[in-house]
Design a protein around this nucleic acid. Structure first.
Lengths: 210, 210
DNA sequence: ATGTTCTCTGAATACTGTTTAGTGAATAAA
DNA sequence: TTTATTCACTAAACAGTATTCAGAGAACAT
């Protein structure tokens, strides 16, 4: 049946169209400032139509997170798989990967990090929240593997690899949010990159066996 | 005029009463989940009355942040002033101070960290946002001083002290939010303390001149 | 006793996420 | 070709909540 397939394809395109519009609107107004009406207008649909493709506003937003998380995963796994680099260099390659994810779409990264609270995640469908959980597991796992490889080679001190991965991730998330907060209080310049580099240099030295 | 003074005192008490109620409600429902009606009910006032004491919901919430930030400042300055400890121990004392702030009221700490976005801070009165800026400056300054003291004593590597302070703060904020997110996705146990200790041990080693 | 100020509230307003009931076109069946 | 069914959408209604407004009543001053 060619008709069914064409319809499904069209449906996916419209879904994508809504996500593109949402991404634009969320980036310019933030999660709270964006209204479903804004997004509908940008996507050239009525607000009601959005609900045929997404359960609610949270779920629409979280679907965008998923795209970002997948980008993150592929970059971090890329670093994990560069087995030729010495462990020390790979920590810095990780820094670069994280920063590139941020550069891809700074405002949405901030939004995503602020969004993922306990309360919000409860309102998602089990499928979507399962996918997010899986993505989180994956990039933490990739960082942990990268670290463990360094331990195996005798370069790093032996400590809980998942805890290490969470620390690296938290530094990234914390610095991103901190820069955003500073911009809210003050018109300071964006010092994320040098600070992130310094942080991972310190971390790198801190886990080196000497 | 004793009457004027009594009235002012009573006014401050009612303001406090509202803040106490708000703290309770925000902690149990989060910022988004708490309604002004909930808070008014808890404080035994009508919602309209709340607006005689606070400009809006954001400002009421941010006033609570201020209490937490002041607690944070006094603890961190306490560590900064323990000049008898060796620099290495002071990094761990800092860890303890941060963790104690968290324990004081975990849910509100999470709420505060999620709240401080550019958009939100714009809706505050200049006075309040000025006070928040000042508090932020103060605890960052205290951590930076503490670090610089270690540099002066020749124990730490010389790097930008404010950047160092922001890294420490970001680790704390990032780990707190990360734990909260995990609880939202999964019913994992709270591993904040061991992870925070590990993070500051790594940081401590990373800045040590050897 | 009367006017004034202070403090509070009930009711109205405005905005926004979400649902409902229904329309018209595309498709399938007769 | 005509009729029935499904699909994709939307206008309008609904519901919840932050915020404002107009006025009541008590405390205070004259």
């Amino acid at each position: 049946m060619g008709i069914e397939e064409r319809k499904e394809r069209e449906r996916q395109m419209r879904r994508q169209q809504i996500m593109d519009a949402a991404k634009k609107v969320f980036a310019s107004k933030g999660f709270g400032g964006a209204t479903m009406e804004n997004i509908a207008e940008e996507a050239e649909f009525s607000p009601a139509t959005l609900y045929l493709y997404f359960k609610n506003k949270d779920e629409l937003f979280a679907s965008l997170n998923l795209r970002m998380l997948q980008d993150l995963i592929s970059r971090v796994e890329g670093v994990r798989d560069q087995k030729d680099l010495v462990p020390e260099k790979r920590i810095m390659a990780l820094e670069k990967a994280l920063y590139e994810v941020y550069l891809e779409d700074p405002l949405n990264v901030v939004n995503v990090l602020r969004f993922q609270s306990r309360g919000r995640l409860k309102s998602l469908s089990p499928e979507l929240s399962g996918q997010i959980r899986e993505c989180t597991r994956q990039y933490i796992r990739a960082i942990a593997d990268l670290f463990q490889e360094g331990v195996r080679q005798g370069a790093f001190l032996d400590c809980h690899p998942v805890a290490f991965a969470e620390i690296v991730w938290s530094i990234f998330a914390g610095l991103v949010l901190n820069e955003d907060t500073k911009r809210g209080l003050d018109e300071g310049k964006d010092l994320l990159e040098p600070t992130l580099i310094l942080a991972l240099e310190i971390i790198g030295r801190g886990i080196m066996k000497n």
